[in-house]
């Protein structure tokens, strides 16, 4: 049996790595161990899948963890209604290719029914928490995989790999279970659930090197392309239905790419000529800005923006 399911271009993959396990091998092995633990110990796990690069890597790891079987859990997308159309297309084609069930929690529906109010600044990232908790409750998910990484943010740096959430989905950073050795404690009582972050220890650069090594497909907007953009708060914003330029903001066509994909109204692009995955690896390695600082208006609101969202039940 030597069915080769992945094509590995950048780093030569050794058949028997033996004494030379490199950092990507070790991170991959740790993530697969965590994914298998959660699937074995929980009744109804699900994976948060947006079509963004971290969730795509998570799904790839899951396919490897259960080979030759299929991924044994559904995926959940909390849809802000402010998505890049190509990311939604990518989400749907990936889900179809892997034969997965897709659950969608819709921010728009909650706004339409009056359960959520649009924010003055128009960004919908913070509004995802309510539909997320609703989808978790409705589907009785007891474990939810996320692609959160500790290097993304100061608050995430304190997050556990298995993070216990109460009935309100709240994260209590001052009262977390100690995580010892590679023994993960997923015990929870009725009403509680666990968020699992198997790629906690990966950095943005690890993610990109892994995407290159494993030849993982991503939505096209992660690579340099020409787009109509305007400058706001030092970021390039795409022109679109939820991100109209103000009269004084000049629209130009620029070669850009996205380092993160999220709510179109608050996600910025970066000027880039990185058209291939190897170009991106080089660009990320040389970058002088963090990915959230460079591209997320909502994380610039305050020093504790992420911490506050997480305490309320955010990813």
């Amino acid at each position: 049996m030597s069915t080769q399911i992945t094509d590995i271009p950048l780093v030569e993959h050794v058949e028997t790595p033996l004494e030379s396990l490199n950092s990507l091998d070790l991170l991959e092995s740790e993530a697969i161990h965590i994914i298998r633990e959660v699937v074995a110990e929980f009744e109804r796990p699900a994976l948060l899948f947006s079509g963004g690069k971290d969730s795509v890597v998570m799904l790839h790891l899951a396919t490897k963890a259960f080979w030759p079987g299929k991924v044994p859990f559904p995926v959940l997308h909390v849809d802000t209604g402010h998505n890049f159309p190509e990311v939604i297309e990518f989400r749907d084609s990936t889900v179809e290719r892997l034969g997965l069930r897709l659950e969608v929690g819709s921010v728009q529906e909650f706004i339409d029914s009056g359960e959520l109010a649009e924010r003055a600044d128009g960004t919908r990232n913070p509004l995802q928490t309510v539909p997320l908790l609703d989808a978790i409750a409705k589907n009785k998910f007891d474990a939810v995989f996320g692609g959160g990484r500790r290097d993304e943010d100061k608050a995430r740096a304190k997050e556990r790999i298995l993070s216990l959430r109460d009935e309100f989905g709240q994260w209590d950073p001052r009262n977390q279970r100690p995580e010892l050795w590679n023994l993960y404690n997923g015990r929870h009582t009725v009403g509680q659930h666990v968020r699992a972050f198997p790629i906690s220890n990966w950095t943005e650069l690890d993610i990109w090197r892994y995407i290159a090594r494993e030849n993982i497909e991503l939505p096209g907007l992660y690579y340099a392309h020409d787009r109509e953009v305007y400058e706001r708060d030092g970021m390039w914003r795409a022109v679109g239905p939820v991100s109209e330029p103000r009269p004084d903001e000049k629209v130009v066509i620029k070669q850009v790419r996205y380092r993160t994909v999220g709510d179109m109204s608050c996600t910025g692009a970066v000027a880039s000529d990185a058209t291939t995955v190897h170009d991106v690896v080089r660009e990320v390695a040389a970058s002088t800005l963090t990915e959230r600082g460079a591209t997320r208006a909502d994380d610039r609101i305050s020093e504790a923006a992420m911490e506050d969202r997480k305490k309320d039940g955010y990813f």
């Binding site: 030597s2 992945t6 028997t16 790595p17 033996l18 004494e19 396990l21 092995s29 396919t63 490897k64």
Partner: peptide, 12 residues
């Protein structure tokens, strides 16, 4: 994941 190994070591 589709590759047959001759040997595996900790922590694979």
């Amino acid at each position: 994941a589709g590759t047959s190994l001759e040997r595996a070591v900790a922590p694979q």
